[in-house]
Simulated assay, not measured.
Amino acid sequence: MNTTSHPAPGELVFRDAAEPDVPALADLVESAYRGDSSRTGWTSEADILEGQRTDHAGVRAVITAPGSVLVVVERDGTLVACCQLEHRGEAAYFGMFAVRPGLQGGGLGRVVLAEAERRAKEEWGVREMQMKVISVRDDLIAWYERRGYRRTGRMTPFPYGDERFGLPQRDDLRFELLLKDI
């Protein structure tokens, strides 16, 4: 967490999201995963899912849930990334991770993930980070594996029929649990 009141130009500032951030955060998550704008980056799900990734209600739910925080990452006052941290006993859940598409591939995601792990460990004393990734996202899973996450083979069904999670373009989508000791 940045504690200076005036960050240096180009410095990343991490802070907890608040209600006024909801529209911009929903737009960021959508731009990173859905539609043509997401194709600028490499995390796009546009080929496997259409429709929305989240909405204002979904972002608001993460911000207001007990034991949950949505971390806003800004550079020079501009929203560049975000991620969810949820305290789950001995573990923290990592989700709603988004980096502005034009900034993907430059190391920003790696910095945000490392800060999330540091924060979960120091503030909550957790020993493990957990996340769920769509199992057919091989490039994304490989990226997490390079950062110390391991596949568990533990799958949960994709919520077919619930348009809040998108409109699947294939019938083999599942979530796989990834873990990392921190």
Rank of each mutant, 00 (worst) to 15 (best):
K121Y: 14
T152R: 01
D181V: 10
P157Q: 13
T78G: 05
R147L: 15
S38R: 08
A32L: 14
V126E: 01
W143V: 12
E122K: 03
T156H: 08
Y144E: 07
E128V: 13
V29H: 09
E123R: 10
I63M: 08
T4G: 12
P159Q: 02
R164L: 01
Q169E: 06
E45V: 04
Q84D: 03
G106Q: 15
A8F: 05
K121L: 03
Q104T: 11
R34G: 08
T54M: 00
G95R: 04
L25M: 09
R34N: 09
L178Y: 01
E123T: 10
A91S: 09
C83D: 11
V73A: 12
G102P: 13
N2Q: 15
T152E: 01
F14W: 04
T78D: 15
E19K: 10
Y149E: 02
A142V: 09
F94D: 13
G10T: 01
L70D: 06
R110N: 11
V112A: 07
E86T: 14
R174N: 12
L79C: 07
V111E: 15
R39C: 12
A65Y: 07
A114V: 10
A120G: 03
V62W: 04
V13H: 00
D162H: 02
L28G: 04
D138P: 07
E128C: 09
L179S: 05
D76G: 05
D172E: 03
L12F: 13
V62N: 04
D181S: 15
D36Y: 03
V133P: 03
G148T: 06
T156G: 04
V99P: 08
E74Y: 05
E115F: 14
D171V: 00
A32G: 15
G102H: 13
V71H: 08
S68R: 06
P7I: 10
R60G: 07
Q169R: 15
G107S: 06
V133L: 08
C83N: 09
C82G: 12
G153M: 08
L25I: 15
R170L: 01
V22P: 11
A57R: 09
S5K: 11
F158Y: 15
G35I: 00
A91G: 01
E86L: 09
H6C: 05
R75F: 00
Y144T: 02
G77E: 14
S135P: 02
G153W: 07
G148N: 06
L12C: 06
R53C: 02
D162N: 07
R146C: 08
G161V: 15
L179G: 07
F165S: 07
V111W: 08
I141P: 06
D47C: 06
Q130P: 00
L79H: 05
R164M: 00
I182R: 04
R151T: 01
C83L: 10
A57T: 12
E30M: 14
G125E: 04
H87P: 04
L103E: 03
D172G: 05
R170P: 08
D55A: 11
